[in-house]
Simulated scan of single mutants.
Amino acid sequence: MSVSRIVKRAIVLLLLASASAAGNVTNVLAADIVKLAVGAPNNWDSSIPEIGQRAGIFAKHGLQLDILYTQGGGETMQAVISGSVDIGVAAGTHAAMGAFAKGAPVRILAAGTTGAGDLYWYVPAASPIKSFQDTNGKTAGFSTVGASTHITLLALIKHFGTSTRATATGAGASTLTQVLSGQIDVGWASPPFGLRQLQEGSIRLIARGNDAPSMVNQTVRVHIVNANALKQRADVINRFMQAYRETYEFLYSDPRGVRVFSEYSSVPEDLAIQIRDTFMPKPVLSPDKVSGLEAIMADAITFKTLSAPLSQQQLTELIQIPPRP
C-alpha cells in the first residue's frame, strides 16, 4: 500500500472515530438526569437502580441516575418531600401514607418490598437474650423513624407483647458498632449485611420481620416520587419505571444480574444467590401492586403514623404506579 493511501485510510478512520465519539457525547448530553435517594446501599431490594445503571438499561431509556444514599427510609422520605430528589427508593409504606395524609407532595410510584422476611434482629453471641421474648426493657435498633425497620420492629414488639425500647440506630454498619460496643442490646440488619458475622458466630439471630404475622402480606417498602416531579416530568418518570421493570426482570432472569450485583455489593456470587432465593424471591419485589392496604392502614393508625384510614379517593391519588406499556 502506498504512503498516500495509508494516509488517506488513517484520515478516514480518524473521522469515523470522531463521529462515533461525538455521537456518544450527544447521547450522554441528551440523557435526562433523575435524582434518587436510596436507603440501605448494597441491599438486594434497593439495588435495582444501581444494577440497571451499571447494566446500561437506564441509559437505553435515555436516563442517567444521580443516586444519593441515605441512612434509611426516614431520610429518603425527607429528600423527596423537599424536592431535592425526584424519586425515593425503599421508603416505609406507613410513613408515605402518613406524609401524604398531612399534605406532603409525595406519591407512591411502585411497590418496593412485600413482607419483611429480609429484615432480622440479632444480639452478640455472648448476650443472655435468647429470643425476642427476652427483650423486655432492652433496647432494640431500627434505622430511622418511619422506615420499614421501625414499623416492623413495632410490629414485633406488639406481637410478642414485650416492653422493648425501639431506638433509632441508623444504617446497618453503625448499628453493628453500637451492638458490639454495648450501646444497644439488639441490632437490626438486612442481607447482605451481617451474614458474615452470623456465619462466623459473632452474632446470633433472634427474630425475623415476618415473625410478626401482620407483616407477611404487607408491602412494607415503596418507591416514592415527588408530586411536582411526577406532574412536570411525567415522560421521564414513566421511562424510569420502564427501565426499573426491565432491570427487575434482568436481576432474576439473567445470570449477569447476579454478577452485576456481586460486583456492586462486593458479595460473592454464591452468597448473592442465597440472598435472592432465601430472603428476596422474585414475587417479593414485584413493583406493580401495593398489597395489604387495609392491614397497612390499621397498623399505621396503631403506630401513630396515620390518624385515620385513607379513603379510596385518597388511595387513588397516592398510589400512581404507571401501567406496564
Rank of each mutant, 00 (worst) to 15 (best):
T162Y: 15
R276H: 06
E294T: 13
L154H: 02
I157M: 06
W121P: 14
P322S: 01
N238M: 02
I273T: 12
G201E: 04
Y244L: 11
L230G: 08
L195R: 10
A30R: 15
N228H: 12
R196F: 10
S4L: 13
V7M: 06
V236W: 12
G170C: 02
Q199N: 09
G92C: 07
S4Q: 13
S311V: 12
S265T: 13
I184C: 05
L293T: 11
G72M: 06
V89L: 05
V25R: 11
Q274W: 02
Y122A: 02
E200K: 13
I321H: 10
L318H: 08
S82A: 11
K35W: 00
A300V: 03
N27T: 01
A140G: 07
A171I: 09
A22T: 13
R245K: 10
T177D: 05
L13S: 10
V106L: 09
A59N: 10
V12R: 11
A95K: 09
A300Q: 08
G83L: 07
L14K: 09
A99I: 06
K8Q: 14
V186H: 02
S291L: 01
H61E: 10
E294Y: 00
R259H: 14
M297A: 05
A40K: 05
G92W: 02
V85H: 12
N228R: 14
L230D: 02
W44R: 03
